[in-house]
Lab assay of single mutants.
Amino acid sequence: MSIQHFRVALIPFFAAFCLPVFAHPETLVKVKDAEDQLGARVGYIELDLNSGKILESFRPEERFPMMSTFKVLLCGAVLSRVDAGQEQLGRRIHYSQNDLVEYSPVTEKHLTDGMTVRELCSAAITMSDNTAANLLLTTIGGPKELTAFLHNMGDHVTRLDRWEPELNEAIPNDERDTTMPAAMATTLRKLLTGELLTLASRQQLIDWMEADKVAGPLLRSALPAGWFIADKSGAGERGSRGIIAALGPDGKPSRIVVIYTTGSQATMDERNRQIAEIGASLIKHW
């Protein structure tokens, strides 16, 4: 067993022997301040990774656009098919120029040779490549099948209805392509620590998230040296922004954090800054 596999296998073990965790309302004060600064709703939840206990939450059962955070769930569904012998990570998928959609920095470079399922998941999570996500959605049967996968996990809230990039439209009061912070946090925890996926697939999923290259201005910008984070960000229309993450000190994750916002007129930089400040408060009061 590799060191990384050992780390993920012992996530519940280490967490069980940690000192009790206590909620700190100071972080919620910052979440509410972010709402004021952005002029928009902000949803927040913080779960203990081992027990699933909610440590703090704000608007945990209000719907927010998922945006690209759905790509972690998508690759979880792909990995479940791999575990069941219905898919192979090494299978190569070929596609054409007509398949390319807006923001496809990886797939646009491989029109000639195609990409493997493993490479597509890596591109979808680490670079948020939209064509990679659409190609992977095709392998599982489309958005409705991802929703069905989530329902089978016990998540009857999260739903995907459309493809990239239309799913980022974020129309107010439109339930399409949305989740709730509580539902997303619980589902992410199941994917990373539950028995739904094999140990190898859980490790692969967290490795992809740990290698995320496009979430630097968010929670990662607030992390002290030595902290662990595996995350996936999302951005959408109407001032929408979000991030889902597993993080913790001492090089291992111990909490799940989900943050979503929508309806702001603020710039992307300002949305990023507010999420980073929430992260800084979380870490300060850990």
Rank of each mutant, 00 (worst) to 15 (best):
H24G: 09
P25L: 02
D33W: 14
A34P: 08
Q37D: 08
Q37A: 11
G39P: 10
A40H: 08
A40W: 03
V42T: 08
G43M: 06
Y44L: 03
E46C: 07
D48G: 05
S51M: 09
G52I: 03
G52D: 08
I54P: 05
E56D: 12
F58D: 01
R59M: 07
E62F: 10
E62P: 08
R63E: 05
F64T: 07
F64R: 03
P65G: 03
P65N: 08
M67I: 15
M67P: 04
T69F: 05
F70Q: 04
F70A: 15
K71L: 15
L74R: 02
L74M: 06
G76N: 01
L79F: 05
L79W: 05
V82D: 05
A84H: 08
A84K: 04
G85L: 03
Q88N: 07
R91L: 05
R92T: 14
S96I: 04
V101I: 14
E102P: 01
P105E: 05
P105R: 04
K109N: 08
T112I: 04
D113Q: 08
D113Y: 07
G114W: 11
C121E: 00
S122H: 06
A123G: 04
A123C: 01
L137Q: 03
G142F: 01
P143R: 02
P143H: 10
E145N: 12
E145V: 13
L146D: 06
T147D: 02
A148S: 10
L150W: 02
H151A: 05
G154C: 02
D155G: 08
T158W: 15
T158E: 12
L160R: 08
L160C: 00
L160F: 05
L160T: 03
D161Q: 03
W163S: 13
W163A: 12
E166R: 05
E166C: 04
E166W: 09
L167E: 01
N168P: 01
E169Y: 00
E169N: 00
P172N: 00
D177R: 05
T179N: 13
M184R: 08
M184Y: 11
A185I: 14
A185P: 10
T187C: 07
L188G: 14
T193R: 00
G194R: 00
E195C: 00
E195R: 00
L196E: 07
L196P: 06
T198K: 04
A200G: 06
S201T: 05
R202K: 06
Q203G: 02
I206R: 07
I206P: 03
D207W: 00
D207K: 06
W208S: 06
M209R: 06
M209K: 05
E210W: 08
K213H: 07
V214H: 15
A215D: 14
A215T: 01
G216E: 15
P217K: 01
P217F: 09
L219G: 09
A225V: 06
G226Q: 10
G226C: 09
F228G: 15
A230R: 12
K232N: 13
K232F: 15
G234N: 05
G234I: 06
A235Q: 15
E237L: 10
G239M: 00
I243T: 13
I244V: 11
A246N: 12
A246P: 09
L247A: 10
G248M: 07
G248D: 10
P249N: 01
S254M: 02
V257P: 14
V257C: 14
I259S: 10
I259D: 12
T261D: 07
S264T: 08
T267V: 09
M268L: 11
R271K: 11
R271W: 15
N272A: 11
I275Y: 15
E277I: 05
G279H: 14
A280K: 00
A280F: 06
S281P: 11
S281M: 15
W286Q: 12
W286F: 05
